[in-house]
Amino acid sequence: MHWTKQAQHDFQNMPAEGSELVMSARAELITAEDPYFRGIDADASLPHWMTVRPLASTSPGGPHIVDLAGGRGWLIYTFMR
């Protein structure tokens, strides 16, 4: 997992509760069978506090956003093959 410099700085300076949430989301994303969670039950295997969707509906294979803790936080990510 690579961070932009700003994202890495922000991560290193967030409260412990926030960084634990980010690391939990990261673990879910990197172990997912399908990192883009396509299908009817797209988020069925995710914890109840996470939802995943494309950042732009016109680019389903591009950047995605994961909403954390009921929308109180989010990560934008792109999987590189």
Rank of each mutant, 00 (worst) to 15 (best):
M1G: 12
H2Y: 09
H2S: 00
H2R: 07
W3L: 13
T4A: 06
A7Y: 02
A7L: 09
Q8V: 00
Q8L: 01
Q8R: 02
H9I: 08
H9P: 03
H9Y: 14
D10H: 14
F11D: 04
F11P: 03
F11M: 05
Q12A: 04
N13C: 11
P15C: 05
P15A: 13
A16E: 08
E17I: 08
E17A: 14
E17M: 08
E17S: 11
G18D: 05
S19E: 03
S19R: 15
L21R: 04
M23I: 04
M23L: 15
M23Q: 08
M23R: 04
S24H: 00
S24F: 02
S24G: 12
R26I: 12
A27S: 13
A27G: 09
E28Q: 03
I30M: 15
T31N: 10
T31F: 14
A32F: 06
A32L: 13
A32G: 00
A32Y: 04
E33V: 09
E33P: 01
D34G: 11
D34C: 08
D34E: 12
P35I: 07
Y36R: 13
R38Q: 03
G39M: 12
G39E: 12
I40T: 11
I40F: 10
I40P: 01
I40E: 00
D41P: 01
A42P: 01
A42T: 08
A42L: 03
A42R: 15
A42Y: 14
D43N: 15
D43E: 05
A44V: 08
A44L: 07
S45L: 10
S45V: 12
S45I: 10
P47K: 07
H48T: 06
H48E: 09
H48G: 10
H48C: 04
M50S: 04
M50H: 03
T51I: 10
V52E: 01
R53C: 03
R53K: 15
P54R: 09
P54L: 05
L55N: 01
L55M: 14
L55K: 15
A56P: 00
T58G: 13
T58M: 09
T58Y: 06
S59I: 10
S59W: 02
S59Q: 09
S59K: 13
S59G: 00
S59C: 08
P60W: 13
P60G: 07
G61Y: 10
G62H: 05
G62Q: 07
G62F: 02
P63R: 15
H64E: 03
I65S: 04
I65R: 13
V66Q: 00
D67G: 04
D67N: 05
L68N: 12
L68F: 06
L68Q: 11
L68C: 10
A69Y: 02
A69K: 10
G70Q: 08
G70K: 05
G70A: 09
W74D: 01
L75C: 07
L75R: 04
L75N: 01
I76V: 15
I76R: 15
I76F: 02
Y77Q: 09
Y77G: 09
T78N: 03
M80N: 13
M80Q: 14
R81C: 06
R81Y: 10
